[in-house]
């Protein structure tokens, strides 16, 4: 039982860090702010949450486990809000989409 928990925690750790790596590669490679945001705010949040869940699985007291899960919930709640706010601000100010974008739903009709 203890071995199974340890193995699950190890797997969650590696998967979470790979998610973080994928998010940062997306941040490096994607062409404009909005697609980079798509990589960073979804895969990055997922990576951090998986690693906190690994800590919660590994912890053997309720206090640590509940704090780690509270961190997960908090992070899941705040990450979409902050990235949506940033994207909205950047679009309102006039940062352009990449030239290879095919559609801009928020473009004002004139």
């Amino acid at each position: 039982m203890n071995d199974v928990v340890t193995l699950i925690s190890a797997a969650l750790l590696v998967i979470g860090s790979v998610f973080a790596l994928v998010a940062s590669i997306g941040l490096l490679r994607l062409p404009d702010l909005y697609t980079r945001m798509h990589a960073a705010s979804k895969a990055g949040t997922m990576g951090a949450c998986l690693m906190l869940i690994a800590l919660a699985v590994q912890a053997n007291d309720v206090g640590t486990m509940s704090r780690a899960l509270a961190g997960v919930v908090f992070f899941l709640l705040t990450a979409p809000v902050s990235s949506h706010l940033l994207a909205k601000a950047a679009y309102a100010v006039g940062y352009r989409l990449a030239s290879i974008s095919v559609m801009d739903e928020m473009k004002p009709e004139d």
């Binding site: 860090s17 998010a23 940062s24 960073a40 990055g44 949040t45 906190l52 690994a54 990235s83």
Partner: peptide, 16 residues
């Protein structure tokens, strides 16, 4: 956005 991502990675570091 990069700073936001750095915070997420730092939380991962703390968990590890």
């Amino acid at each position: 956005l990069g700073l936001d991502m750095l915070v997420a990675i730092a939380i991962g570091f703390i968990a590890v």
